[in-house]
Design a protein around this nucleic acid. Structure first.
Lengths: 206, 206, 206, 206
DNA sequence: AATGAATGAGTATTCATTCAT
DNA sequence: CATGAATGAATACTCATTCAT
């Protein structure tokens, strides 16, 4: 007989659902990996029925891909923009924004994507392709352009780093992985990345 | 009336069985990852029945752990021995055996173990523990000792590398991962590792 | 200021909706059978939302029954009327309108209803009941009356066909089923039905 | 502490299992049709775990096909053999073994297969093909040969039945379907088939 | 009346693990 | 020791039905 309005059984929020589901999925994939992640769990975390997950993502795999694609891209874009428009000296840029960027990776969502790609990339070649095209490849290309410009301005000399800019980011990768894998074995990743940048600069400065 | 002992070739000694199974398991885990690997497949590749697998390894997880433990250790041991008994100068050692060691990692079984640990380590903390104690930790300790000795002999100066010998191996890690993940995007990992060693030495030499 | 009444073409009158939905449902049930038919598909073909289907038909089963009931009845009624009011001789009627009627069955909607009843009748006894009362039973009764009349007029003699008028329609049933099942194995069902009628008449004529 | 031998948890009966499972499957498909049949139910009736079903039949569809293929064939073979070797007159054969054969169909497993093919044949064209090649086609060919022989011996005359032996079996088909569909509306199928044979013979005898 | 987002029970299929032989 | 038939819990995915809008 009470007039208490019953909590509606569900909400219609078409706009938000995909994002919410993808967000929950990210968490679950992050914790369990692709194979061990259960769609049930994703739905539960998103506060949604299992069926709804399948309304927005046709299969678990598609959900996975969507989730992986959804992370990452913006950040690299803004760094690239910054590189191309900075007025800092090359050295100052590397020591400043570049180091800051790399220091932010370990512990971030990106590093989790990294782990998922290392673990599962194998069976999702298109995902690897996407990731290479949009992140890795562009990042490396950006670094190459940047170093080249440094040479033109006389700030840098030409070294192996020009061909293999991976040398610049290797400690960032190690840091990201270390933090995820050896959670308890602390590593001062900020310092690691900085020290490495010192070494790089010492090496490439004209 | 004596029974001619036939088919000695096919008569596997029982002692070998666990090894053979583990070997097959390694292959399967390498290809599929932990969750997607099927015990059936392992047994088939080992040429034994599924039941036998369970005679030697109580669960799939135990099999996984045994497999991971089975790789790796000898190689690092011999490197450590070599470090401790070498008569080369520190620089010569780094440029020679050390670089050679690191160059062998990408594409090797160790890098596969690496991948599996990155992917699944999470849920097998004891495995991570084991791996840290026996491989990573000992390797880093060895590097620390080695650098320290170089300082004592006046060959090296004290730098951040002393605290974070990870700086030395980061490109090896990147190379190993790159080779597994971006199979088609070739990377000259030997040169990468060498170039990095140049840089390191330039940086730490007194 | 008067609002021009727009899009009359798209303004379906509500009275038509149930019919349109049933029509679409018929198609889908015909193609897939009861269990494999999806309400979604029915709605899509009817050009309405899934919800609307449930406004007019409480459940999928009810929709199915409505669809089955919707076919069939008129045709048999008009044949019965014709029988009762024809001025043709009995033979002429059988060779003319009766054969024509039977020849129209294979390939028609009725034969699809037939298939659905054979396949699903089991679980819808009321549907079978309905179909028997309104179609099969009445059809057979009509044939009995007709044959009886033929006997009274001296045109026919009494045979087993009087008790089992199914003998008259058996080839029609076979034809209908054959056409649906062995689509590619052509069968001249018109001739089959005609030849059978020859035989029947030869048999029952006084 | 009791010495009562515990009922073994399961039996290994590799030989019998497929047959038992197929048998159970037949029952379930017969009752429910393909789509509504549950593999769970099949396993339960076979007294077997669900998993075992999948050991012997890769999918539900394969199980269905195996089951359908498993029925039918022997009976038609023996009839054909009989036709080709009988010493009865053609008429005696038709009135005797042929009628007996047709009378056995309604109510038999074959009629259930018939229903399943009518209901589901659509989506299993290979099954239809198989059934046509092995049963329907051969049966009709046999009838044609038989009639032809009757003509050669002067017992029969040439009629439309030669081209369309379906005329002979139509009442059998109707009987089979009637018995399955209108379970409660009794029909003396034996008499129906016999009366029809009278008519046929009257028609085709020289 | 009409929509279609949301629900959740239901089902085929897989696979680690057991155990009779 | 060795086998592989047998088990059963787990899980991706579907679809009839509901209900907020």
């Amino acid at each position: 007989m009470s007039a208490v309005p019953t909590e509606p059984r569900y909400q219609r929020r078409k706009e938000d659902r995909p994002k919410e589901i993808a967000e929950a999925a990210f968490e679950v994939f992050a914790e369990k990996g692709y194979a061990a992640a259960r769609v049930d769990e994703v739905a539960k975390r998103a506060g949604v029925s299992k069926g709804l997950t399948y309304l927005y993502f046709k299969t678990k795999e598609e959900l996975f891909k969507a989730v992986i694609r959804g992370v990452v891209v913006r950040r690299i874009d803004s760094l690239i923009d910054e590189v191309d428009s900075t007025e800092l000296t090359a050295e100052a840029f590397l020591r400043g924004p570049m180091v800051a960027f790399m220091q932010r990776i370990p512990g971030s969502r990106i590093s989790i994507v990294l782990r998922l790609l290392i673990a599962e990339g194998h069976r999702h070649p298109d995902l690897l392709e996407y990731y290479y095209e949009n992140v890795v490849g562009r990042g490396l290309a950006m670094l190459r352009r940047f170093l080249e410009r440094g040479i033109e301005t006389g700030e840098f000399r030409r070294t192996a780093v020009n061909d293999m800019p991976q040398l610049i980011v290797a400690p960032m990768l190690l840091s990201a992985i270390w933090k995820m894998v050896f959670v308890k074995r602390s590593l001062d990743t900020d310092r690691l990345i900085e020290a490495h940048m010192d070494m790089i600069l010492e090496h490439i400065k004209a």
